[in-house]
Write a protein that binds this DNA or RNA. Structure first.
Lengths: 258, 258
DNA sequence: CGTTGAATTGATACTGGTCAATTCTAGTGG
DNA sequence: CCACTAGAATTGACCAGTATCAATTCAACG
């Protein structure tokens, strides 16, 4: 079966309103479920759970960034996603986790027993559509990632990543200052490249004036439109204007000359 | 949020029992929802819907195979999945489909109005977990595909594809005879390769006696264990035995030397 | 200020892509 | 029933984009 996102380009449906805001208003939301759980802290690099562990809990990211990855038996690593505040980890029907979750930055999480989570979801007509929406968003993101991995060049991949990172920010007027908390190795394993290729590509983007690194984990995006064009999936008209962030709900064409 | 499959290796949770069997028994199942809808036929190559179309319906595949794909604006195509009898297409919260669905073979479908589908799901405590299970399966399959696209070699990709195709069959005793209904171009666009590379890789597998083509769309798998090893994600012990199909629920390790 | 892992940069290798030429095969029509 | 045809698949020669290997350089932290 195939599902789609409630919002194009994977702005997560529920991420806009912070967990706190909803919980405070008493509106039933997925994160309000977790609100009473104690906050647990993980230092950067620490694993929340491992691929193969018994999947006993569902987690909500409260603060920080997680990486979620799978390893091939010879050590090749694939990061299937990064998780941000408001995201859930470990929702599943499987007895064991199918991936490892690690803290990229220091992370705060809330934990919920799996079976309790399931029964809460099952019995709440408010929560169910929200969970469903998150699944749809995640599926859409996975499909974008498949497009990236299957057909995009190194430059398109890096540009796509930076673009999505830029969109995650509350777009500061003009050029957004993007935080890249993860290492180049994380980026490489997420984009299906090597560190060297990621590094070279970013150097080239810098030389062309598209981005302007500010330390290793902060990047000023100087030409957002250019970045969007380089990323692939958008119509490549003017890259001169260099105005604000291209809106998320962009039009999609339905033409395919067979 | 991240979810996992109810069954490893993406044997779909609900696919085993045919739609008919369940519907006949009156057991509430996703496909029983569709059972009263008229069957629609699509000839090979016909589109069921296009990326960008208003997403007004959900479809159940009754017979045949669909390909689901997205196009980049310059024509690069990525097939994100193939759909088989029992699968649903078009489940979404989005107003428009995010991908095109086309018939690979002559296909029979049943159609269900989107809002009716949603309310049925919403009001049925039996159906909901089944839909959830399908979402989980699909998410797990998407993650496998990301691993394939991000890190596997051409040979590993082709081997993985043939292996999954072989597993879909009711494993005939000994060497399974695998049907590959799609063209090489479909395979290439699914595996992130070119037709030429797919072709060369299959030729090499044939020369090594791993597979034995029987026409262009049928393949006798002579060395299933070898194929499994070549596919990557399985421990590569003996490839001599060449006995039955490796079971789906294989063990996963949880080691990661950081 | 020194140390160490991360990142960058360079030289070279190799997998898979591109372009082009056959060869196959499933239809089609005589 | 069989030759013809057009698209699909295979094969080959060559090329390009990334990976690999190796050497610096950078920057965060003690």
């Amino acid at each position: 079966m195939y599902i789609e996102s409630a919002l194009s380009n994977h702005e997560p449906a529920l991420r806009r309103e912070t967990p706190e805001s909803l919980a405070a208003e008493g509106a039933p939301s997925l994160s309000s479920l977790f609100a009473r759980q104690p906050v647990e802290r993980f230092e950067a690099g620490a694993a929340v759970f491992w691929e193969g562990d018994t999947a006993a809990h569902v987690f909500e990211v409260v603060d920080g960034v997680l990486r979620v990855f799978r390893m091939m038996n010879d050590g090749r690593r694939v990061i299937t996603g990064f998780l941000y505040p408001g995201d859930l980890v470990g929702v599943s029907l499987e007895r064991h986790y199918l991936y490892t979750a690690e803290a990229v930055t220091p992370v705060k999480l809330r934990r919920f027993a799996r079976n309790r989570f399931q029964s809460e979801i099952h019995s709440s007509p408010e929560l169910r559509p929200q969970l469903f929406a998150q699944l749809c968003d995640e599926m859409a993101a996975a499909q974008d990632q498949m497009v990236l991995l299957a057909r995009k060049t190194a430059e398109e991949r890096v540009a796509s990543f930076l673009l999505v990172s830029a969109r995650r920010l509350k777009s500061v007027a003009g050029a957004p200052l993007v935080e890249i908390p993860m290492t180049r190795l994380d980026m490489a394993d997420y984009l299906g490249l090597t560190i060297e290729t990621v590094s070279r590509t970013m150097t080239r983007l810098t030389q062309r004036g598209v981005i302007e690194p500010n330390g290793r984990h902060t990047i000023l995006v100087r030409k957002l439109r250019t970045l969007a064009v380089l990323a692939g999936e958008c119509d490549e008209d003017d890259s001169s204007g260099e105005t604000g962030v291209p809106e998320a709900g962009a039009v999609r064409r339905a033409v395919w000359p067979h």
